[in-house]
């Protein structure tokens, strides 16, 4: 049911993008919606991230899974139990660039002969790595439509990506990897009962949305071609803030563009905000140096205290009169 809702939602949105431009003025889907989507993306992301930034972290709470800094002859595991900023930097870089936490994923199985067995399960890590890095390359390649003249690093990426030189236009490695990785991530949610059980419509929505964007893009490049110069003219006019809408761009392109707009708007609202979120994980981005450096809880406020000395000063005579012992006469 969750799957169906998400699938229908994305299919519906795609249809809106495909057939919407036919019934509205050209500028609605080609100009107004992309601008609105980018604005909402920037504003939404700023609100979400600055909202997180405003949340105080009352304790230093890094997760540790290795030897802490100790006596000089005991080797510290710097990445697993960072005690200095530079260690944290290394830990964060590996987390952000190589999703190190996912590599810890384990699988448990109940076997007749050996009982409950645990094993490393790298399939999620591999799928996530393939999907994210392919997406990065795809995004980089798209810069050719937004820049004139096209910078050398974009052309280089394109050449490298299409080095197989299969088909015309050449099939890019990143397209294939991206699509396969997305399909695997979808398969994983559908095939494993325990993952399916915890999957919400949103989880499928994000996958279907990316699949829709990738599918329409690949379809446009390899199956039904569109006038790429016209597409570039539109894209570049948008970033130059002098929008012109060329005629004769295929509806499929507008379906692709509309799904990208939906992605931009949705990005800060839902689970995809894990992108900035990974930078702000307190369990990862803090050093485990509680004993070396005092950590002040930002929630701490100056507490009014009434010490015993002050108490005695206040009630000394009454205490003496009542026969209670006092420190100072």
């Amino acid at each position: 049911m969750n799957v169906l809702i998400s699938l229908l939602l994305v299919a519906g949105l795609f249809a809106v993008g495909m057939f919407g431009p036919g019934v509205t003025p050209a500028w609605v889907f080609a100009v107004a919606l992309p601008y609105a989507a980018v604005t909402l993306f920037v504003v939404g992301l700023a609100i979400r991230v600055m909202g997180w930034a405003g949340v105080p972290v009352p304790f230093r709470i890094p997760t540790t899974c290795g030897q802490q800094k100790s006596l000089p002859w005991i080797r510290q595991q710097r990445l697993e139990n960072p005690s200095r900023k530079i260690h944290v930097l290394g830990r964060m870089a590996l987390e952000i660039l190589f999703f190190r936490s996912l590599a810890r994923n384990t699988r448990t199985e109940l076997r007749k002969d050996r009982g409950l067995v645990y094993g490393t399960d790298l399939s999620l890590w591999a799928g996530a790595m393939a999907m994210h890095w392919a997406l990065a390359v795809v995004l980089l390649r798209h810069l050719r439509l937004f820049t004139e003249p096209v910078p050398a690093f974009v052309t280089f990426t394109e050449k490298l990506d299409g080095f197989l030189e299969i088909g015309l236009p050449v099939i890019n490695v990143s397209s294939v990897v991206f699509l396969c990785a997305l399909l695997y991530l979808l398969y994983r949610r559908l095939a494993h009962a325990h993952v399916r059980y915890i999957s919400l419509p949103e989880d499928y929505f994000a996958l279907f949305l990316l699949l829709g964007i990738a599918g329409s893009g690949i379809w446009m490049r390899h199956l039904s071609h569109t006038d790429i110069a016209g597409v570039k003219e539109l894209a570049i006019s948008l970033v130059h803030f002098s929008p012109t809408v060329p005629v004769g761009i295929e509806p499929l392109f507008y379906g692709h563009l509309f799904l990208v707009c939906v992605l931009l708007v949705y990005f800060p609202l839902g689970k995809l905000a894990h992108a900035p979120g990974v930078f702000l994980s307190p369990t990862r981005n803090m050093a485990n140096n509680n004993r070396a450096v005092r950590y002040v809880n930002p929630w701490d406020y100056p507490v009014k205290v009434h010490t015993y000395e002050e108490y005695e000063d206040e009630f000394r005579e009454k205490m003496i009169a009542a026969g209670l012992p006092v420190d100072e006469e």
Partner: peptide
Amino acid sequence: YPVWNGLASSADPER
């Protein structure tokens, strides 16, 4: 990047 790259470049962005 595309925006400030466009501002800096003198190339004609028209097709």
